[in-house]
Design a protein around this nucleic acid. Structure first.
Length: 318
DNA sequence: AAGACGAAAGTGGTTGA
DNA sequence: TCAACAACTTTCGTCTT
């Protein structure tokens, strides 16, 4: 690592990143940001990796100028705080950092400084809106047990929505919910609209409308929800063996090739594949159990199950 | 008796005129 | 804005284990 020290001055994209592409939109424009410790797709805002190690060599300063130039201080930047966590706070103690008390004139000065600092920090309506929305995002993610990069991605999405003035006339709640949903879809973490609607006390219809609007206006490419991710989730909820889970995923892969998945609800197919795998692995769960965790009816599972059986038996003999 | 199966009618969302 | 449409649900009777 130290051998590369000549290129240590800039944050340019290293050669290994050039080979990587965004799994969501296929963009090759990736930004490796050491301050955020993230690799972000510049095109769609998808956080590809987080908590990356800072591979830049530690600096050595030989004089004061280098020292000021290279010093890194402060909390990491984050998109989840409305000013990205970069604002300064002024201490409430009326005293100098070193030593004694301050004069009354200085105290007045400090007072007005603080006042303005507050005003600047959350200045206009948009800032307040953003601050509120971001705290909302935080609540969502903890209620849904979402990883941190989902919130980061959702924050980026929300910021872009504000920039494009998409929030006007829409409620903050709906747009935040839609941002979370969009973020989940982009990151391949299966959460249904129903789940988001349930914990947010919002109308599913309204969230869906905001979501579609945002997708259109932001020009985001959203991969279709994959049944595969759902299958993994159902398997975990049902506590079945890894063998059966792997089988379910294999089934889905074949099903995809046979074009069984198009037009069907991903949850239904995932549920059917899970059911089929439990049957094959002799860990039989009832259709009702699976229907419950998958939030579909037994009838739907049966129908998909039947289709799967018919087509799969032709393709591979089990 | 519980679970699986399937037919028929009903529901909510999408699409295209 | 409305009707057509496919996917899915609800309901219920029958079959299987």
């Amino acid at each position: 690592m130290l051998g590369k020290s000549k290129s240590s001055e800039d944050d340019s994209v290293s050669t290994e990143d050039k080979k990587r592409i965004c799994p969501e939109c296929g963009g090759i424009d990736l930004m490796r940001d050491y301050d955020l410790a993230e690799i972000v797709c510049v095109k769609c805002g998808y956080v590809i990796d987080e908590k990356i190690a800072d591979t830049r060599p530690e600096w050595r300063a030989f004089d004061d100028e280098q020292k000021t130039k290279r010093t890194r201080v402060g909390a990491p930047m984050t998109y989840t705080i409305h000013d990205k966590g970069l604002s300064t706070t002024i201490d409430w103690n009326d005293r100098k950092s070193i030593g004694g008390k301050i004069t009354s004139t200085q105290r007045m000065e400090l007072y007005s400084l603080r006042k303005w600092q507050r005003r600047v920090r959350v200045s206009d309506a948009t800032e307040r809106n953003l601050a509120m929305a971001l705290s909302e995002l935080g609540k969502f993610s903890s209620a849904l047990n979402l990883p941190k990069n989902i919130v980061e991605t959702a924050s980026v999405i929300y910021r872009r929505a504000i920039k494009k003035r998409l929030i006007r006339g829409r409620s903050i709640h709906n747009v935040t919910a839609a941002s979370i949903y969009l973020s989940c879809r982009q990151c391949g973490i299966p959460r249904t609209l129903d789940e988001i609607a349930a914990i947010s006390n919002l109308n599913k219809k309204d969230i869906a409308r905001s979501y579609r609007f945002m997708v259109r206006e932001l020009g985001t490419i959203v991969p279709p929800a994959t049944s595969r991710n759902y299958a993994a989730r159902f398997s975990n909820k049902l506590i079945i063996s890894g063998k059966a889970e792997g089988m379910a995923i294999k089934i889905l892969e074949v099903a995809k090739k046979l074009k069984l998945t198009s037009g069907r609800g991903p949850t239904g197919i995932a549920a059917a594949a899970t059911y089929l795998s439990t049957v094959l692995a002799n860990e039989r769960k009832t259709q009702r159990e699976i229907a419950e965790v998958a939030n579909v009816t037994e009838v739907t599972i049966r129908n998909r199950y039947k289709e799967l059986l018919e087509k799969l038996l032709i393709e591979v003999d089990i």
